[in-house]
Every structure is written in structure tokens, then in C-alpha cells.
Design a binder for these strands. Sequence first.
DNA 1: TATTGTTATACTCTATAACTATA
DNA 2: TATAGTTATAGAGTATAACAATA
Lengths: 144, 144
Amino acid sequence: MSETARREHTLASRLRLSTVRLNRRLRAQSADSTITLSQLSALFALVQGGAMTPGELAAKEGVQPPSMTRVIAALEDAGLVVRRAHPSDGRQAIVEATEAGYARADEEVTARERWLDSRLAELTPDEHEVLMRATGIINRIAGS
Amino acid sequence: MSETARREHTLASRLRLSTVRLNRRLRAQSADSTITLSQLSALFALVQGGAMTPGELAAKEGVQPPSMTRVIAALEDAGLVVRRAHPSDGRQAIVEATEAGYARADEEVTARERWLDSRLAELTPDEHEVLMRATGIINRIAGS
DNA sequence: TATTGTTATACTCTATAACTATA
DNA sequence: TATAGTTATAGAGTATAACAATA
């Protein structure tokens, strides 16, 4: 292994471990809620991006269509989104957040992401900036 | 929501999404291997940190003991680690990477984390530095 | 009694393959 | 035929609760 490769690998190991750990912590915050992390993420995407098809939503969240099907079904069961017929293409559907969905997204922001929000509030402006830049780099790496 | 809170929350959303995405990509790389991401991570910890008890390993990886039990069992089945009796405490065990485990860890580095390594190799030194700092901040947030 | 570890059980998240309906 | 979406199935990853063995 070359020196450069070893240096890259040190970062790879660190990045892998910190990613896995934060992911775990984020999911752990879900414990006392009826909505899961994936569902919350999709709901946010709909609230912020407006109505869209399941395929568009899957692409936006970076998952395969079958995975999104289940997420949408759960949100629909909870009354947080509705499915409408596409005006010109019978194969497609339009998924949209309901009024309850918008309200729920607001609640979750204040109640559920409080853990991460408050951790981030403890950071210095400099550290804040590092994380903002890091998310951009990571998204590029992950091909979003 | 205050201005500060909104700014924090923007970062929270970005960080959450990029974390979930990278985690997904990292796991996807496992597809053609017989060893999973969790197992690889634990094996690395043993190779780098030397023999330790299941409890220590669970703490190091930030998972609960029952989760680590399964990971160790899988690694043991694959012949990559062995379990020895603790010299002075019959309740505990010592888990240690075998020669095959060390060899496998090396192979996985070159074969399996190549995806992440090569992505990271495309970064500028500055971006590299940002990610190094970010992993430190994230680990602090995640309480490792 | 307290600690270490395992077993039992269950849930989230995600994927691929196969299928249906529409274009 | 091609595309959008769903259903079926399976596996990774993790947790909590209950238990066994040892200190």
C-alpha cells in the first residue's frame, strides 16, 4: 500500500465509522415516534419540494422505487400523504403531503430532530462551516 | 423557529441526508462479498486494536452487546476470529483475529473499500482536510 | 447482587426479481 | 416494446427483554 493510499484509507476508515455511528444515533432518536427516519425524510422532501411522483421521490431520496413504495404506503396509512391520479399518464401517480402531513413535519422538526439540532448548536461557527462543506463533499461522493 | 434555529436545522437536514446516503452507498459495496460492513468494521477494530472482550469491542464500535454477539459469531464461523477463555474471569472471553482474519482485512482494504478510497483520492487536499475535521466533529456529536 | 455475555424476538431499511398496467 | 409502479422475497443491521453463568 502506498503512502498516499494509506493516507486515503485512514480517512476512509474514519469516514466510514463516523457515518455508521451517526446514522445509528439518528435512527435511535426514532424510538418514541410512530414515524421512521426514512418516512420522515420522504415527508420532508414532499413538504419542501411539493407534490411529485413516486419515481421522482425515490430519485430525490436516492433509493430504488420498491423501497419508496413502502415508505409512501406507510405515510398514506398514517394520513400524512395522499396519492392522486396523474392528469395525463395513467401509469403514474402524484404523491402530496396532506395538511396533517405538513403539521406533522413541523412537529417532528421541533420534537424529533431536536437532538441533532441541539448538538449542532454547541458547535463553533468554524465547526459549523466544516460540516456544511463536508455535507456537500459527501453528497458529491455518494452521487446525489 | 428563530433564525439561529433555522440555520441549525438546515445543517441538520443536510447532515442527516448526506449521512443516510453515504451509509447506503457503503453498504451497497458489500453486495459481492461474503463479509458484511458491520463484520468488516469489527474485524478492523480487532486487527488495529488487538485482542479484546466482546464488551470492549461492542463499546468500541458503539453497538449494544447482543448486536456484537452476532457479528462475532459470523466472523468466527468464517474463521476470521477466535474466542479464547479469559485468564481470570470466567464470564468474559477474549476475541482475537486469526491469521486468516489479518489476511482478510488486508484484502478487504484493497478490494472492498476501493470504492470509497478512490472517491476520496479525487478530492483536493483542502476537501480532504474538511472531511478529516468533519469526522472528528461527527464522532464527538455521536458520542464515540 | 452486579456484571458479562448469549438467546429470543422484532422492527427498520434496503435491494433485486417478477409482475401488472399503461404508453 | 418501454416505462411507472407494486408485490414478493430476502438479507443486513440493530435494539430491548429475558436468561445463564460467574464474580
